[in-house]
Design a binder for these strands. Structure first.
Lengths: 344, 344
DNA sequence: ACGTTGAGTGTGAGCGCTAACATAGAAGAC
DNA sequence: GTCTTCTATGTTAGCGCTCACACTCAACGT
């Protein structure tokens, strides 16, 4: 509540424009433009003159004018779930970094935010004339909303097992394989009754993990019980635990669709006096921060989030710039820790 | 490697522009502009004509042209740490949502990403002519890098205890108070030797939490030991545990600067056979996801991340649009759970 | 001597929008 | 009925950049 001089933001005298630079350097505005865009076409002496003038005036080019003239915004839209889950958050950051070094800026918007529908988010991006779209951690409805656009707008989806991937590009993390690895690990340890707590059924990732678990059980000639419906949160895992324990054939191991589910599950098991891994083995997914310090530390599946983000951008940029992006399946890795042991 | 028709992105016939809409509606382009910007100045009949034409053509206005003409980009830069910590991630999402409904788009960039220095990130935002800047979870060096700009660019920092806050605006979460609450809670339970595992010393938040702990101990007439240096990660908490246990006066309680530190600490205590809360009480900070399902569940301090984001945007928008933002101190709340009990 | 090349630079138009002003016509004042 | 006022709309000139093209001048071949 102090009284004082409020440093009002004075509208600066006038930002220098290209012709100002040109005048100072003694060249035409087009030469300045060339120095900025195709420096190799400008004689070194001239170039230096211009660069000095730019420096001296503190000139920055007006990207709006540039976008207007070139019809390219160099903007990329990133759609995420709007919830700060560990994995997607990580990937989004990697995308931003990769975009920036490729000369693009990202505008991010969460779907599910404040009741915003996927359609609104798309509308937002379209208004901003993004040149490409990355969809992180897609749900069915987001994918459906985006699909009609994918023919005209470069689009990359980060997901495995997307039905009808064309005309979207897919950067696939092989969650099905990750889930198989997790399940196989438990099989190798001698477990024969392995339950699964699933993620939200409208997420592609959750479905893929479920499919991997099913496939591996089937490959081992084991019956496949119904997965326990879950979500992504610890409380879902906690709630699912009760159902795990009342399954007709009491499982000796549980594969949870993410680490938080596993945490909630382990908490519940602890409360009812069951020990992990001695009584029930648990495997999570994501290698979330802290999972290595849970008690017991969590066996889990690690995804290379940075790589995923980098790949997504490289595919997107190639698509935008008319290349032919190669496909690549990113395989997550099993991290063995304390939460599973041999079956009794 | 399938051979097939690659659906090349055909450059669309031509996106409709304002004059196309005007022609169809039988008005001038300026009337179209008015319908979009100041609809109340247009006669309802005309307005409907125009709106119908817009609908029919699928017209979207070109924001680059608009920005060029108005000299306003309606872009806001968000600087975050570049690491997906729980709190900042949450806040960033809230900022995005709030910005969108205020008619702005956010471009986010992490500092610390891929060795990018704060200066580069700032350069990036300046090139994009952002109208405002929000700094989430600031470190000393980011604040220092931004300070010189704050006179000319609307800037909001989310932090308490920022030295020389002017001319930046500050949306303050009273972490000092939060830390005092945490510490007082332990004092009330009878603890007299309360250690602190601190966050990274170059984060304002970490410093504020430390100060709160110190202030509360001092107010209780207790000696203030040196805080144990930590970080934000579980492994830092784990490492700090060893130092906690070798403190001259063995603490009966520990206040950790965030939940992950607390988790790492508890893990270590568990390994050496100490029980929480019976042997040592622990309080965390942030109410991170999962902290309510740790074993034991973690007493912690919860911040209203969404509110913080919303407030930050409201202050920023007011600043941009020439208002006089009011200050407000956001107070976090203590969440009591299992990880602390009465001192022995 | 002449055209021919090509490297380096300049000129003018125009991207799609808004701001400022100009205009037309209806409504009201006297 | 004329003058003013107000409402609704049209006209013109940029915003700052890039594109397409025009130009200049040396170097070179014939």
């Amino acid at each position: 509540m102090q009284k004082g001089i409020c440093p009002v933001i004075v509208s600066s005298p006038k930002l220098p424009v290209m012709t100002d630079v040109a005048a100072l350097a003694g060249v035409s505005h087009q030469t300045v433009s060339r120095v900025l865009n195709t420096p190799e076409l400008v004689k070194p002496d001239t170039r230096k003159q211009v660069l000095d003038a730019i420096e001296q005036l503190g000139y920055r080019r007006n990207l709006s004018a540039r976008a207007l003239a070139t019809k390219r915004t160099r903007l990329i839209g990133v759609i995420d779930s709007g919830v700060s889950y560990f994995g997607p958050g990580h990937t989004t950051r990697a995308i931003e970094a990769a975009a920036r070094s490729a000369g693009y800026a990202t505008i991010t918007a969460g779907v599910e935010n404040a009741g915003a529908k996927p359609h609104d988010t798309l509308e937002f991006f379209l208004n901003h004339a993004v040149e490409g779209l990355v969809i992180v951690a897609p749900t069915i409805d987001v994918a459906d909303a985006v699909r009609p656009l994918a023919g005209t707008l470069a689009t990359v989806v980060i997901a495995t097992g997307l039905d009808a991937p064309e005309p979207m590009h897919v950067v696939a993390v092989d969650h099905e394989q990750g889930a198989r690895d997790a399940t196989r690990h438990l099989l190798t340890l001698g477990h024969r009754a392995i339950a699964h707590i699933a993620g939200p059924d409208n997420w592609f990732d959750a479905r893929a993990r479920r499919r991997g678990w099913e496939a591996e059980l089937r490959a081992a000639g084991l019956p496949v019980p119904d997965p326990i419906p879950g979500g992504w949160d610890a409380r879902d895992g906690y709630a699912a635990a009760a159902r795990v324990l009342t399954l007709p054939e009491r499982p000796t191991a549980v594969f949870a669709a993410n680490d938080l589910l596993a945490l909630g599950l382990m908490r519940h098991l602890h409360e009812v006096g069951l020990r992990v891994p001695d009584d029930i083995a648990v495997v999570g997914y994501d290698d979330s921060e802290g999972s290595d310090y849970f008690t017991p530390s969590l066996t889990t599946i690690r995804q290379p989030f940075d790589l995923v983000g980098t790949r997504a951008m490289s595919v997107l940029v190639k698509t935008i710039e008319g290349g032919n992006p190669s496909n690549m399946l990113i395989v997550p890795t099993l991290i063995v820790r304390e939460s599973c042991g041999a079956a009794r």
